[in-house]
């Protein structure tokens, strides 16, 4: 993922050129609408720069999802569902965000096994059925 940052400059150049190219080619009708998001955040600062950052974030998150075993045919739809803020949060911190998936039963089982082992080793004495021979 970090490797991608090295490509930031050339990729940014590419994006700028293609944005300019397309905006010269087709004067799209709604290119000039102020989005609701921009109004709510009262910031339309350098939308082009934000678009480039979003493209980089998107590529990072794509790799991260693939790395975490998401079915490649599902990745695109999952990326599309994310806002720019969410993409950025994932791109910068996905490894540290909690991925909740606990099965409380297997958690209890885990604790049980840990205590059982410590009982057997003699560090704890939680279960009466763990007998230690008197020395």
């Amino acid at each position: 993922m970090k490797v991608l940052r090295q490509w930031a400059a050339p990729l940014a150049g590419y994006v700028i050129v293609s944005v300019l190219f397309f905006s010269l080619q087709v004067p799209t009708a709604n290119a000039a609408m102020v989005t609701t998001d921009a109004l709510l955040r009262s910031a339309q600062v350098q939308q082009d720069r934000l678009n480039i950052e979003a493209a980089l974030d998107r590529a990072d998150v794509h790799d991260a999802l693939a790395g975490y075993g998401v079915d490649p045919t599902q990745i695109q739809a999952r990326l599309d569902a994310l806002s720019d803020d969410e993409l950025h949060a994932l791109a910068t911190n996905i490894d540290n965000l909690p991925a909740a998936g606990t099965d409380p039963l297997s958690f209890l089982l885990f604790i049980f096994i840990v205590l059982l082992i410590t009982d057997i080793l003699g560090f704890t004495q939680v279960f009466p059925f763990v007998k230690h021979r008197a020395r």
Binding site: L65, G67, Y68, G69, V70, D71, Q74, A77, R78, A81, L82, S83, E86, A89, L90, I94, L97, P98, A99, A100, G101, T102
Partner: peptide, 21 residues
């Protein structure tokens, strides 16, 4: 397929929000 990360054996809050959308 919308929220689970197999290798992390769990789901991220951000993706739970996104899936609702």
């Amino acid at each position: 397929s919308e929220v689970f990360l197999p290798e992390r054996k769990g789901s991220l809050q951000i993706e739970m929000v996104a899936a609702a959308r």
